[in-house]
């Protein structure tokens, strides 16, 4: 089941096409990475999902049916460029934003108090944002994004501006929200967090969708089907009848490391069965490319 389905969404600004017939689905309960270089059209797509702007053509489904205006109450959006009213007290401001998402003052107050306790910032309620550092303000922003318990969270670079301790705190909260069933769209340039957090991704480049799917599938798809074998000894690897071609072999941190190109259709059992006969194997693993490499490859090829 998908929470968001985009069908052939096109958006133009004058002569400039910001999104060109983009189709993708975001499965419920997943963390979905929305990737792409700067200016690719990510923000435009996020704004269309948020109903900030309307697509020129194409269809947007929310929860399997065409979007309604009230769906925005089911969405929490943390934009990349974000801020708060400087002169307004934190508590008042958070309640105001919650009311705009359809909560009552009582609900919002209760929910906020819990979050303030969770983040250990109870003393901030009556402070003005102008007294805060950027990181402190970011915490408030995160809370105001999630406090109305949205079904869909859109986080644009959620970790920027945080120190490592707080990055960890936010990461924990994101995973907890996922556990609780929230679907999360994560837009980021940090490929490590994509590998770590995301189940699926979509990569957009120059207004077009380049690839979308499960992270593991994509990494395999863009891998060149190599395996890495670490083994003890001084001799080059003995391949015996293993269905592979040797790519490289050499010393590696006191052991030796060989990279092998797997022949089509061969299984790991077949390969290992042969290798184990003549080598003292320490580790064996598929070499799947880093998201970073896939990103660079896809973006520069286009």
């Amino acid at each position: 089941m998908e929470i968001i389905t985009c069908k052939d969404i096109t958006k133009k600004f004058g002569n400039y096409t910001a999104l060109n017939s983009v189709s993708l689905s975001i499965p419920k309960g997943e963390i979905f990475g929305l990737l792409g270089p700067n200016g690719a059209g990510k923000t435009t797509l996020i704004r269309i999902i948020n109903q900030i702007s309307l697509p020129d053509s194409g269809e947007l489904l929310f929860d399997g049916r065409p979007v309604k205006l009230s769906d925005v109450e089911q969405i929490g959006y943390l934009p990349e460029e974000r801020g708060l009213y400087k002169k307004m007290k934190v508590g008042e401001q958070a309640i105001y934003l919650a009311k705009l998402k359809g909560m009552t003052t009582a609900q919002a107050t209760k929910e906020l108090k819990e979050w303030f306790v969770k983040f250990g910032i109870q003393g901030w309620w009556d402070k003005k944002v102008e007294e805060f550092s950027k990181g402190m303000a970011q915490k408030i922003q995160f809370i105001t994004t999630v406090m109305h318990k949205p079904k869909l969270l859109i986080l644009d670079e959620p970790f920027s501006g945080f120190d490592p301790v707080n990055v960890n705190l936010i990461r924990k909260e994101i995973l907890a929200l996922k556990e609780a069933g929230t679907t999360i769209i994560l837009s980021t340039h940090n490929m490590e967090s994509v590998e770590e957090l995301c189940d699926s991704i979509a990569l957009i480049n120059k207004s077009n969708l380049v690839v979308t799917g499960k992270v593991d599938d994509i990494r395999r798809q863009y891998g060149n089907n190599h395996v890495e074998v670490i083994y003890r000894g001084l001799e080059p690897i003995s391949l015996a009848l293993a269905p592979v071609e040797l790519v490289s072999d050499g010393d590696y941190k006191g052991n030796r490391r060989a990279v092998l190109d797997v022949k089509p259709g061969a299984t790991s059992a077949q390969i290992l069965g042969e290798l184990i006969k003549g080598n003292d194997i320490v580790s064996y693993q598929e070499l799947i490319p880093r998201m970073n490499d896939i990103f660079i490859k896809l973006v520069t090829n286009n």
Binding site: Y77, R82, G83, L97, L100, K101, T144
Partner: peptide, 17 residues
């Protein structure tokens, strides 16, 4: 201008037209 420079507008505009 204040809402624009503090960038709170993008959050508000995701809730209200």
């Amino acid at each position: 201008i204040e809402e624009k420079t503090t960038r709170i507008i993008e959050v508000i505009v995701s809730s209200v037209k």
